[in-house]
């Protein structure tokens, strides 16, 4: 136990030595990694927000199914509720609808022209286009209507952002790996004598590689902190503006403008440490042979 602590201590000291020896390239690595993580974090948060928006919107989406003359609303409703995409079916009989209409529009008292209607709520907004054709095919249903455009657009944007974000993050992570690789390679070169001595005197290669992997992990952690600071700063500037815009477009949705900074920071830290430590491990595996 004590021995493990002493070894850990040594590893930390050697990690610090490695960081000191790397000088300005520390900053290069951390900056590039921080840029990668910031973009990753931005995409993550925009995606989270859009997902929330779409979901909120989706909860309001419903398909209106107009029944054919003579179809029994209760029976049809029961049938529809068995579709897996359906969350809830609400029956609006033509009498109720007519009453309501007369109330609002003061129409002349003619015979009720409205059909019985079912309001179908979905378990997920993505399913609108799956469910609507199924309903249309039913003989008891004459017509269906649903608002689609906005939800679909938001979803498209989200998917595009996810893809673009994934691509950019991957590309930047790869670039970071190269820079980390070079930095660690230089440290390994500078310390090749120590490494050789340790290896020939029977120090395990895990211990020998540890300081380099730690160095990479430190890069990842620093970059994640920097990226978090940048993101928080961005929010301070951007959030009020976005809220304003959304308020004029769709006031009901403003409270759904949600993202989790904590979650983002944790994910950025994980990605940063994985990229940093992974890059170092890979490099030290390449250049440190026993």
């Amino acid at each position: 136990m004590l021995r493990a602590i002493r070894i850990f201590n040594r590893v930390c000291v050697e990690t610090l030595l490695g960081l000191r020896a790397s000088g300005w390239s520390n900053w290069l690595v951390v900056s590039i990694l921080a840029i990668a993580l910031t973009i990753f974090g931005c995409v993550l948060q925009v995606t989270m927000t859009l997902k929330n928006l779409v979901n909120a919107w989706g909860n309001q989406i419903q398909i209106s199914a107009y029944l054919a003359e003579g179809a029994d609303p209760k029976k049809v409703a029961h049938e529809i509720s068995r579709f897996p995409e359906v969350k809830q079916v609400e029956i609006v009989t033509k009498d109720v609808a007519w009453n309501e209409m007369q109330h609002t529009f003061k129409v002349a008292s003619i015979e009720n022209p409205l059909p019985n209607t079912l309001h179908v709520k979905l378990s997920s907004p993505d399913q609108v286009e799956v469910l609507a054709p199924k309903l249309r095919l039913m003989s008891a249903i004459e017509n269906v209507r649903y608002p689609l455009k906005v939800a679909k657009k938001i979803n498209d944007v989200r998917h595009f952002l996810e893809l673009a974000g994934l691509f950019v993050t991957t590309a930047l992570s790869a670039a970071t790996l190269v820079v980390i690789g070079n930095t660690i390679h230089l440290v390994i070169k500078a310390r090749h004598k120590e490494i050789e001595i340790l290896s020939l005197m029977g120090v395990g290669h895990l211990y020998i590689k540890c300081p380099f992997v730690f160095q990479g992990a430190v890069y990842g952690a620093c970059a994640a902190i920097m990226a978090s600071v940048v993101l928080v700063g961005l929010h301070l500037y951007i959030d009020p503006y976005v809220k304003d815009q959304l308020l004029s477009l769709a006031p009901a949705l403003t409270q759904n403008l949600e993202y989790s900074m904590g979650q983002t920071a944790v994910l950025m830290a994980i990605l940063g440490v994985v990229v940093g430590a992974g890059g170092s491990l890979w490099t030290s595996g390449r250049y440190i042979k026993i």
Binding site: R3, A4, R6, I7, R10, E194, E196, M201, Y207
Partner: peptide, 30 residues
């Protein structure tokens, strides 16, 4: 095994004591 080299393989930035102690410390000896 104790291995001795033609070119000594000493760390010039470390004192004699620390050169000899280097590996012991790496192995976690108190």
């Amino acid at each position: 095994l104790g291995i001795i080299f033609q070119d000594f393989k000493l760390l010039n930035s470390q004192t004699v004591f620390n050169n000899v102690a280097y590996v012991l410390r790496a192995l976690g000896v108190d």
